[in-house]
Design a protein around this nucleic acid. Structure first.
Lengths: 243, 243
DNA sequence: CTTTATTGTTACATAATGTAACAATAATAG
DNA sequence: CTATTATTGTTACATTATGTAACAATAAAG
């Protein structure tokens, strides 16, 4: 199960192998106990928090680069990915946070260090099964952890805006089954699916209407019943038909 | 009315002032006589067609750069703009078409000429009133013209894919009033609005249903009647309330 | 066996949408 | 002036989707 060693193996690659000016940022959503969470990095002792990100190699497809970044942080390689926006504000040109990070890491750097430039960030959101993820921090960070989206720490640069834009797109996307397929177990009860929708939308939904809509959508297959051990009728299990 | 002289004034700016590796491509939609059109550049005598595009200056906001590009091609500065996707395929790294363009233009170039690199393209679509546009070609092109989207010439690199993705996003966006607001005159009849929707969607719509839906949406204001000179009841004029 | 909690189902009201018919009216032809 | 024609605005009704409440089923606990 553990592939942490293989990850972060950028040793043979130098900054020269990367496209300048282009970065990739990822909002990695997970779901557990009625809470929507994202992965956040904390840079070593600097109190600076950031979204997981990376850069594009000169001979690499944009999507492949994103999958590589995601693999390095999560250990997963079959992840649902959605490119939702590219951020190019001049606010992003402020290199002070990254200078502070490099100092804290005692990395010697010149003014023209690769990390100290303006990056235009192509941003993706990802949906993952939180139980399959083994978060690993990158070289400059000492933690990569799940944070409840309701209580995020202050994020560096425009990363808060990136997260909020991602959430907006996720909410618009919630009717596609990929959302359930990647955030829930393979099989789930109708109640669990409704809880997921309510958490993402921050809105209570009507039980009967939700049930009917899901069944009429034709995207669910009903499996057997699930013994919950609770004192009431046992619910059916469902799974998504492939998109 | 003519501001063609002020446009294309990049004389004081050198390639050094631009971010490397990042380009901006624009799908500029217009509408005339039940036809959806886009602006396409033809490079001088090379038979190579491309979407209007440009580059991002080092001290420039991404959106400002796009508005600058649009102003240079159309002369308009108050344009509806939507960033819909960023294209980073390795297919884009093929510099042969651009080399051919430079040769045809008798521009001497080295292998490391700014235009001969891999660009990641941040792409926008724009909606404009075709009557207000005075298309102007750039230095390397000899024409910038409207083409019916049903009969586009073959486009360079992945520009065909960029156009198709833009059209998909426009179709999803058609219910926002910006679509009508920027592609039609300020006031229009219900029939003209329906024709626009049908053209964009490539689909016949029901007249009664369309009329009712538009009126119930609360986004239209009914003005006076319009004399058409035709032998039938004269239609009302409508305008969009501000979004 | 009764109670309790939650799920599945049915029923009915309301709203949205599809479709057809009809009424209004501006120009034209006689 | 009247009838005709073409297109628009409106109304009516059927169909479908959605909101809401009531009821039936049932697994565990008392």
């Amino acid at each position: 199960m553990s592939n942490k060693d293989e990850r972060n193996s950028i040793s043979e690659v130098t900054w020269d192998d990367y496209m300048p000016g282009i970065s990739i940022d990822c909002v990695i959503f997970g779901y557990h106990k009625k809470e929507l969470k994202i992965l956040v990095l904390e840079y070593k002792k600097s109190g600076i928090f950031a979204l997981p990100g990376g850069f594009l190699r000169k001979n690499e497809e944009l999507k492949d680069a994103t999958e590589r970044v995601l693999f390095e942080r999560t250990g997963l390689s079959d992840i649902y990915l959605n490119q939702f926006h590219t951020f190019g504000s001049l606010k992003r040109a402020d290199t002070k946070p990254m200078q502070s990070v490099l100092k804290k890491n005692q990395v010697p750097f010149e003014e023209n260090h690769f990390l100290l430039q303006r990056f235009v960030s192509v941003s993706y959101y990802a949906l993952v099964d939180i139980k399959r993820v083994e978060p690993v921090a990158d070289e400059l960070s000492d933690s990569c952890k799940w944070y409840d989206t309701d209580t995020l720490p202050p994020l560096m640069l425009d990363h808060r805006e990136i997260f909020e834009t991602a959430l907006k797109h996720l909410r618009n996307n919630i009717n596609r089954n990929v959302v359930g397929m990647n955030l829930l177990d393979e099989s789930f009860t109708m109640g669990e699916l409704q809880n997921l929708h309510e958490t993402i939308l921050s809105e209570k939904l009507n039980r009967t209407g939700f049930h009917r809509k899901m069944m009429l959508s034709g995207r669910l297959k009903r499996l057997g019943k699930k013994k919950t051990g609770k004192a009431h009728r046992s619910p059916f299990l469902y799974k998504f038909l492939d998109a």
